[in-house]
């Protein structure tokens, strides 16, 4: 397999040559580790000029974090738009959009500094997963979206923020309350 230098546009090459151990019902292939050969370098642990790459990346993320409030609001706006769409027509497309918006928030809210908002979005996704093709009760969807917006509006960044924690716990109770109905179909 040809591997062009980083920075050049490569071309595909069908010439694979991979050692294989062939067994009765499976083959074990051992592709050569070219990444290791190319990218590993030895450094002197005493070299003070070597900066920990993880710390460098965390610093880079810190520099980016001034954008996060804006991004968080944009994600909530997307969730709000999806919520309004499901209120008008509860079809598969609008439910998929609602799920995707909630799913984005559950993955990103903690990075943006709002872990409780992420937990609430996570709860909404879990509820929709449990319901399958059936739409979730619209009032419960509304409560989740409003709670996420309230958490951001109030600046509830800590997991133990009184308002945020109360909202998250209350919504978890609401979801638990309809769980038997989901299980019983």
């Amino acid at each position: 397999m040809r591997e062009p230098p980083v920075g050049q546009v490569p071309t595909a090459d069908p010439g694979f040559d991979v050692p294989a151990d062939v067994y009765a019902d499976h083959v074990v292939l051992r592709p050569p580790n070219r990444l290791k050969a190319r990218a590993v370098r030895h450094v002197d642990p005493k070299d003070s000029s070597e900066v920990d790459p993880v710390r460098r990346a965390e610093h880079a993320l810190d520099l980016l974090s001034h954008e996060f409030d804006l991004w968080m609001n944009a994600e909530i706006d997307a969730l709000e738009a999806a919520r309004l769409a499901t209120a008008k027509r509860r079809d598969a497309g609008s439910l998929a959009d609602l799920y995707r918006a909630a799913h984005d928030l559950r993955g990103q809210a903690a990075t943006f500094g709002f872990p409780l908002a992420g937990e609430i979005a996570d709860g909404l996704c879990d509820l929709m997963d449990a319901l399958g093709d059936r739409p979730p009760p619209q009032p419960l969807v509304d409560h989740h979206v409003e709670a996420i917006r309230a958490i951001v509006r109030e600046g509830a960044r800590d997991r133990d923020h009184p308002l945020g924690a109360a909202l998250a716990a209350g919504l978890a109770e609401m979801r638990d309350a309809i769980a038997p109905r989901i299980d019983g179909q």
Binding site: P53, E58, A60, E75, Q108, T111
Partner: peptide
């Protein structure tokens, strides 16, 4: 998600990726 792509790209550049 453009925000997530930007976050991952930022981390990778922080690790030294070009």
């Amino acid at each position: 998600n453009a925000h997530m792509r930007r976050i991952v790209r930022t981390l990778l550049h922080g690790f030294g990726a070009r």
